[in-house]
Simulated scan of single mutants.
Amino acid sequence: MAGEDTATVSKQRIGWIDAAKGLTIILVVMEHTTFGVQNAVGHLPLIFGTITEFAKPFRMPLFFLVAGLFAYKALYGDLRKFVDGKIVHFAYFYVLWSAIQIGIKILVPHEGGWEVTYVDLLMIPIQPFAVLWFIYALALFFMTLRLLRSARPFFVFFFAIALYFTQLDTGWMLLDEFAWRFVWFVAGVYGAKQIFQIADWARAQPAKGLALGLLLLACVASVVFSRLIDIRSLELLMGFAGGGAAVMLVSILASAGYAKPLSWVGKHSLYIFLSFFLPMAVMRVGMVKLGFENGDLITLVATAVAVISPIIVFRLLEKTPLSFLYTRPDAFRLTAPRNFKPRFTMAAGGE
């Protein structure tokens, strides 16, 4: 019985992570949908425009914080597994889906001021395309911390903070996003113990956790809508405030059993990140052509479709030859195939 209690506590302790991933991907899809709708209808949707602006300081920080929570084992583990899981894995999906997205934009007429040409295909190795920059950034973050794994965490964090305050703006997405986002991944890796403690405390003290989480979100809102968010130091603080609030609130929801839809989305977050752009665009364009004018309604429907459709497509394709779109084939693996089962032979005498 004691073993079951321990297992239950352990499961609850990390169960909120998928929900946090789900929250992040929904916020990302919502942002892209909101601005797409703005271009289509000529004005920013009132409700979703406000939510998008409010969530901006902590949306991607939360993603990279969570991505860093379980990175320690990879950073200090076997090199071959590291290269396979954190470089080859990300590179496969990044290159594949960059080519797909660019190809679609070249072949299919689209609205907007961003002209896509065959040059974008050649730029894939050095200039991430659209939302896929996050995959490239994650691989770079892992590689950088792997190289710096012998350095003291304090100095690595100081380096990340210094990069953040450079406010790098070279026009090269890879460099600019690395400087802007690296600090959050570092915080997730080296602050994992503290982040789990925050989640544990909120789950143990739900009333206090709820109150503190809402207070932190209120602070974020006041800074964002007063335009003080443009101050770099406040932007950094609001990233931590919003990320901490999200961790507490999601942990409380997961503990109470109310975060299952978010967890379901979070478990499929990679598939959504890779392909939400197409159903989002199709639904947005279709609703506008059908005469819908309410930007918030279009955003709501397009966001829901963009989140759910990739999961459905993945399920339909996972047992077909097209499964390579969402599952890395064994030919692109450095370690044992997914279905590899080693055979053990026991000596007659045994030891």
Results as ranks from 00 to 15, higher is better:
Gly171Gln: 08
Val186Tyr: 09
Ser150Met: 06
Leu138Asn: 07
Leu145Asn: 03
Tyr92Gln: 04
Leu132Met: 10
Val108Ala: 14
Val119Ile: 13
Leu163His: 07
Phe142Asn: 10
Ile106Met: 15
Trp172Asn: 12
Ala99Tyr: 05
Gly171Val: 05
Gln167Ser: 09
Met143Cys: 08
Val88Ser: 03
Leu175Gly: 08
Phe90Gln: 04
Trp180His: 14
Ala151Ile: 05
Ile87Met: 03
Leu174Ser: 13
Ile135Pro: 00
Ala187Tyr: 03
Gly188Cys: 02
Asp120Phe: 08
Phe155Asp: 11
Asp176Phe: 13
Arg149Phe: 03
Ser98Lys: 07
Phe165Pro: 06
Thr170Asp: 09
Gln127Lys: 14
Met143His: 03
Ala162Ile: 01
Met123Asn: 14
Ala137Pro: 00
Leu122Ala: 15
Ile106Arg: 11
Ala91Lys: 00
Leu132Ile: 05
Ile87Arg: 00
Ala130Trp: 14
Leu138His: 04
Ala139Asp: 04
Ala139Lys: 02
Gly171Ser: 06
Pro153His: 06
Tyr136Asn: 03
Phe158Val: 07
Tyr92Arg: 04
Ala91Asp: 01
Phe159Asn: 00
Ile135Lys: 01
Val131Leu: 11
Val131Asp: 14
Ala162Leu: 12
Ala137Arg: 01
Arg152Phe: 02
Leu174Glu: 09
Ser98Cys: 07
Leu168Tyr: 03
Leu138Glu: 11
Trp172Leu: 11
Tyr118Asn: 09
Tyr94Thr: 00
Ala151Cys: 02
Arg146Thr: 06
Val183Pro: 05
Ala187Asn: 05
Leu145Gln: 12
Tyr94Arg: 00
Thr170Met: 11
Glu177Ile: 05
Glu115Ile: 13
Leu121Arg: 06
Asp176Val: 11
Trp172Glu: 09
Trp180Arg: 15
Tyr94Phe: 02
Trp97Phe: 07
Met173Asn: 12
Leu107Lys: 10
Ala99Asp: 02
Thr170Arg: 12
His89Lys: 03
Gln127Asp: 12
Glu115Gln: 13
Glu177Cys: 04
Trp97Tyr: 00
Gly112Ile: 12
Ala162Val: 07
Tyr164Thr: 01
Ser98Trp: 05
Phe141Gln: 03
Thr166Glu: 08
Trp97His: 03
Gly103Thr: 09
Ile126Thr: 12
Val116His: 13
Ala151Glu: 11
Thr117Trp: 06
Phe185Gln: 03
Ala151Met: 08
Pro153Asn: 06
Trp114Val: 13
Leu175Glu: 09
Phe129Trp: 11
Phe157Arg: 02
Arg152Trp: 09
Val88Arg: 01
Trp180Lys: 15
Ile87Glu: 02
Ser98Gln: 10
Thr117Asn: 13
Phe165Ile: 04
Arg149His: 05
Phe134Leu: 13
Asp169Glu: 10
Leu132Thr: 09
Tyr118Met: 15
Ile87Leu: 13
Lys105Ile: 04
Ile124Lys: 11
Ile126Val: 14
Arg146Ile: 07
Glu111Asn: 12
Gly171Asp: 05
Val119Pro: 02
Ile161Cys: 14
Leu132Gln: 08
Val88Asn: 00
Val119Tyr: 13
Met123Tyr: 15
Leu140Phe: 10
Ala99Asn: 07
Gln167Val: 10
Ile102Leu: 11
Phe129Thr: 01
Asp120Met: 10
Val183Leu: 15
Lys86Gly: 01
Arg149Val: 04
Pro153Val: 01
Gly171Pro: 04
Phe134Met: 05
Ser98His: 11
Arg152Tyr: 03
Leu96His: 05
Glu177Pro: 04
Glu111Val: 12
Ala151Phe: 12
Val156Gln: 04
Phe155Thr: 02
